[in-house]
């Protein structure tokens, strides 16, 4: 483990410095984590809930985190799991996901995209959650497969295949619109 990671872990485990060190983590990671979550759940209010739960889980799990991975990887993994749990609870069997997303984005005050971007969000929403996460991390956040592998707990080969399938589905979605 790198020296700065070791020090950070010590600060997070010491009752006297825990809160200050944690507030530093919140300041550093709230934005990247928010955007990872927001692209998955789409609605700002939902992303806010999931982000808060992510940090609350991290806070209560600090004692059991022993530096098995980087602190940032640990946070991203919690955010990913919280997002999946949220999407699982939100399942709406009566209406297709892309229709729901399309309707929502039409009236969302926090969506500024043009027609192509709205259609792209609609296409992304048709992907199963895990495939969607892989696509978003690679396409929007341009993360390396090795980093993604650590966060998502999936092999690099499987991630490459998943991204390829996701792109194929999105292309098919646009061609079906023509």
């Amino acid at each position: 483990m790198a020296a700065d990671e070791t020090l950070l872990l010590q600060l997070l485990h010491d009752d006297k410095t825990r809160e200050t060190a944690f507030s530093g983590l919140v300041a550093q990671y709230k934005q990247p984590l928010y955007w990872q979550i927001r692209r998955m759940v789409v609605r700002h209010e939902d992303a806010d809930d999931v982000l808060q739960n992510t940090f609350l889980k991290a806070w209560t799990g600090l004692d059991s985190f022993r530096g098995q991975s980087k602190v940032s990887t640990w946070l991203y993994r919690i955010a990913y799991n919280e997002t999946l749990n949220f999407l699982e609870r939100q399942k709406m069997p009566t209406q297709s996901v892309d229709d729901t997303t399309a309707n929502f984005l039409q009236s969302d005050p926090y969506f500024d995209g043009d027609e192509t971007q709205r259609q792209l969000q609609q296409a992304i929403a048709t992907l199963p959650p895990k495939q969607r996460q892989v696509f978003l991390m690679k396409y929007y956040e341009e993360q390396k497969y090795e980093e993604m592998s650590e966060i998502l707990g999936t092999s690099v080969g499987a991630l490459k295949a998943t991204y390829h399938f996701a792109v194929k589905k999105i292309t098919d979605f646009f061609n079906a619109l023509e």
């Binding site: 928010y34 955007w35 927001r38 692209r39 700002h44 926090y110 969506f111 500024d112 995209g113 043009d114 192509t116 971007q117 709205r118 792209l120 969000q121 396409y139 929007y140 792109v167 999105i170 292309t171 646009f174």
Partner: peptide
């Protein structure tokens, strides 16, 4: 489809 324009973040807070 996956152009630079499409890659821009369409969401706000």
């Amino acid at each position: 489809i996956l152009t630079q324009r499409a890659k821009e973040n369409p969401f706000r807070t």
